[in-house]
Amino acid sequence: MSIESRIKEYSARLDRLAERLKDEDSSNVNIYRNFLTFVSDNPDHTYYPITKLLTAAKCKDANQALDVANYFSVGRNALLNVTFCYFDFDGTDIRIDRECFIDSLNNNTPPVEDETGYPIDNFEPSRLGFYCNLISE
């Protein structure tokens, strides 16, 4: 499915979401729309680290950026592929799965490295993060 069709589909989903939330707080709908607009304006931009999600969706913190990443990465015809990582001291990315990431974020405990199944040694919470790639096929 092309990016254009995925964007169109998400746009329709957002309209329905906005309709449902019309009497409630819809700030999330706004940041989702911001992000969708950015992607349709810049279809060549295929990489979205946290800092770029912040500017593209005009959100105010990493939690909102995570929310954007989640919204656009789950379900059928998702727009983003999210990679959860521990950004290790030596410059490498250690892959962790979504569940371990959420666990670690909520409890401030070392996440389990997907490759080895061991908890990360010397865990430094600020090094927990993610990045997204646009799904283009």
């Binding site: 946290i50 410059g91 090094r127």
Partner: peptide, 11 residues
């Protein structure tokens, strides 16, 4: 100067 890519992305 070799910051982690993620660190650099945050300036």
């Amino acid at each position: 100067f070799f910051p982690h890519k993620n660190t650099w992305e945050a300036n």
